[in-house]
Amino acid sequence: MQRRLLLTFTILILAIGIAFPVAAANQPQQASEGRAQVVGEVIRVGTDAAYPPFEELNEDGEFVGFDIDLMEAIAEDAGFEIEWINAPFDTIFTALAEGEFDAVISAATITEEREEIVDFSEPYFVASQSIAVSLDLAEEVFGPEDLVGLRIGVQLGTTGELYAQEELEGVEIFSFDTAPLAFQALGQGDVDAVIVDTPTTEEILATNPDLEAVIVGEPLTEEFYGIAVNEDFPELLEAINLSLENIIQDGTYAEIYEEWFDVPPPEDFLPDEEDEDMAEATAEPTEEATEEPAG
């Protein structure tokens, strides 16, 4: 009896003793120490690779997309290497804060709630949300107010889900794991409309005409994508911001943008006017010499 009593109390104290420190440790853990430098390091970057044209996996299983190319360009400019990690979007920020990776680039909108647990770089893209509906509903739905009474598909943990929850009345929201899954449900008629970032919606609808769906209405929001970095790795954040600016200024950003979207990027992401002349002057002195004959 004594032994049993003793053992019982030990376990009791252990159990309670574990519960409370676990509570205190609710804050995400620190990133691993000793990552003070960036150059030459292998930086682990997380992304939800089911979001064309920003990131997806091609037939060979490689990461391809606008975000991928952009981040690779930043890495080249800053002098680090990238290890890409595929992660589900709804837990990607928590995972980043806990040190699963060092950065996240995943068409992620900069929001206040996310800023509380991770740091964001300067914006690298301007996007919005769009409503996609099947063709037969396109006659009736012209804007968010017409979605009343319908079933809306969104991706779990995205600003599209947030928009649907806060701005729409009398709708039923289904949160899918990935955006393509939500569109699949739309194609089958299991949801009536899908709210997902505009570039991705356009891409998925263009590459899957059998979904028989269209975008209706005006863009719903204005959002800025940013690269998320672990709060304990400010050096990486600085390096990313610096390199992002460099890439914008030397035209690499514009190149990547045009490759994926067929049009030049918005003005904010084009090189500044004076720098452009200077860049041309310093970059191609021989051409200038031939263009302007002496005298």
Binding site: A25, N26, P28, T91, E116, I117, G153, S175, A182, A185
Partner: peptide, 27 residues
């Protein structure tokens, strides 16, 4: 939950995604 049905697990995921309090929610 993978079919977006709001059962206990899906609700947990939704709460965790919105509040980032992963430990509390999953306990």
């Amino acid at each position: 939950a993978f079919l977006a049905l709001p059962d206990l697990f899906q609700r947990g995921r939704a709460d965790a995604a919105a509040s980032y309090q992963v430990i509390d929610v999953y306990i």
